[in-house]
Structures are given as C-alpha cells and as structure tokens.
C-alpha cells in the first residue's frame, strides 16, 4: 500500500503504542490520509471562497457535491496534490459563477441551465452511477445497486432543493439555487467519460523537470 509519509508514520505510532495487529496499520494509514486530505481541501476551498466573497455559495457547492459523490462516485486524480488544486479551485469558482449568473443572467437562461443539469444528472446517474475507482472498487453487486438507488435519491433531493429555492423569497435563494445546479453539472461531468479524460489530462501535466 502506498500512502503518504505522514499517514504511515502516524499509523505506525498508533499501532505500536496501542499494541494493535499490524494489518490494522494500513487501515489507520488509509483513514488518516483520507481525513487529512479531505479536511485540508475543504478548509482551503472555504478560505478561497471567503476571499472571493462567495463563502455561502462555496458551502452549498461543497455540500451538494459531497452528498452526490458519496453515493455516485466519479473520476479521481492519481495525485493528492493535483486533486487538492482541482477541489480548491473548482468549488469557489462554481460559487463565483453562480453569484454572477444569479445577478446578471436572464431567468430563462438559468431555467435552461437547471433543465440541462437535471437531464445530465438523471442520465449519468441512471447510466453510470456508481462510478468506483480502481483504488476502492465496489465489489458486491448488492452494494452497487444500493449505491445507484441512493445516488438517484440524492440527485432528486438536490434537484428538489434547487427548484424550491428558485421559488423562495429568501434573499440568497437564487444564488444558492444556481450553486446547486452548477454542482450537479460538475458531478455529472465527473461521472462521465470526458470527466475521466479531464482528470487523466490533469494527472499527465508535467510540472518542472522530471
């Protein structure tokens, strides 16, 4: 198992001090890495969102995408650092775009965008979800079926929330509604072939001399 040095070191320390079986060391290294990377990415995305003046929208995008990706899955990067750049850049950018669209775009355009998101989300969930990663495959057919049903439920909840917010009088409702729509489009893209190719392209970008 190839984990980052800090996860292996911390897992080794915990295993040694508690007298845990050595096979549990990999489990600890795995969860430490997952938690640290995800927490760092979320905090950095929120800080960038706050800096861009769209903290509320960034939170909405992160919540929608997290709920959707938990069950539907999607494309992954092979590098934690490139993944961090994508995660930290995408969600505040979606929130910024949502703030712009909710302020300046015509209602008809936002309605068309919402219709595209619902169609794309529904089709990708029905045809592709759950999209697992080779590093964490979904082995059981029963679990695969369960994840598909759950991702369809999550998709319907997010779509319903976007529709309800479109009709709400709350001052931030239009912005949050567009955030949800853009998040559904992003996650649908990550489920699809072009989304996988985009992540592969990001993985293949050469940085510095090798």
């Amino acid at each position: 198992m190839s984990y980052l040095a800090f996860s292996k070191r911390l897992a080794g320390y915990l295993t040694g001090k508690t007298g845990l079986a050595t096979e549990k060391r990999d489990v600890l290294a795995y969860i430490i890495e997952v938690l640290v990377i995800n927490l760092t990415n979320v905090i950095a995305a929120l800080m960038l969102g706050a800096f861009l003046g769209v903290l509320r929208g960034t939170v909405a995008c992160l919540v929608a995408a997290t709920l959707f990706r938990q069950t539907a899955g999607g494309a992954h990067s092979e590098s934690p650092w490139r993944c961090a750049v994508v995660t930290v850049a995408v969600f505040p950018a979606l929130a910024r775009l949502a703030a712009f669209l909710s302020k300046y775009a015509q209602t008809a355009f936002i309605d068309i965008l919402a219709a595209v998101a619902v169609a794309a989300g529904f089709l990708t969930v029905i045809l592709l979800a759950p999209v697992d990663s080779p590093n964490a495959p979904v082995l059981s057919p029963f679990r695969r079926k369960k994840l598909k049903v759950l991702s369809l439920a999550v998709f319907m909840i997010i779509s319903a929330a976007a529709i309800i917010l479109r009709r709400s009088d709350w001052v931030y409702a239009p912005e949050i509604s567009v955030c949800l729509v853009l998040s559904v489009i992003w996650v649908s893209f990550m489920l699809s072939g072009p989304g996988h190719r985009a992540m592969r392209f990001i993985d293949e970008i050469k940085i510095g001399r090798r």
Binding site: I31, I37, V42, G74, C83, A136
Partner: peptide, 22 residues
Amino acid sequence: LLLANIAAASTCLISQYQPEMP
C-alpha cells in the same frame, strides 16, 4: 477504525483523490 468502515461504505468523500483502500 470506525470512520474507516464508514468511509468504506461510500464511493468517495469530497475530493478527487482516492488512496488505495486496504
């Protein structure tokens, strides 16, 4: 260890990186 089992039940968390699952 409890969190590892909970995380294993989902396809992924938030970010685009998935370490190798034991």
